[in-house]
Amino acid sequence: MSETSGAGDPHGERSLVLQRQRRLKWRALDWLEAVLMMLCGFTLAGFCAAVVCDIVTRTIGAPWLWLQEVTSTFFIYGIFIGAAVATRRNDHLFLAAVGEFFTGRPRLLIESAIRLVVIAVGLFLAWYGYINFLRGFSSFRMPSMTPIASLYAAIPISGALIALFAFEQLVNGWRNGFESALADDAANDARETPS
């Protein structure tokens, strides 16, 4: 379902700023990746804590009814923040990467097309997510009566970040070459693959 690292951690996958495909990234945006990764940890920890409190308060017979809204807030923001930062780290789930079989100009075209699609999806999520966010002010979460817009807001934020990170890769790919960026990783892989 999702790629997870285990013992070994060849690319330092757990580090807050991933060094894989370094040449596709601007150093100036590294702080953003680090902050988003920390937010991933924070939302997950908050989510876990809220679920634990929910169980405990329910078991002792004094349930905090608003906890479920807190839980879903952490859960939803965690998903959309994670989806954004995974774009910069290239951690998403892929069906295949036809591009790897090509070099030169076709490769450049394919890699660029991929980023353009992702930018389009990101901008789509940002703009229509914003319209959906505005709609969300007239629908309320029960029982606190908070507008559901408070949750919908996660989507346009995520969309804008997705578009930004795909744009970053596109510009750096054109400047530094997509292939050479990946070749660095292949060299690293070769060094670390146990023989």
């Binding site: 999702s2 790629e3 690292s5 757990r14 990764m37 991933c40 940890g41 965690g78 994670g82």
Partner: peptide, 22 residues
């Protein structure tokens, strides 16, 4: 001492199947 880092990383990977679900 590595637990905070585990949480950051786990927070990232749980979003991957879920954004696909979305």
């Amino acid at each position: 001492r590595n637990l905070p880092r585990d949480f950051c990383y786990a927070g990232l990977i749980y979003s991957l199947p879920l954004i696909t679900i979305a």
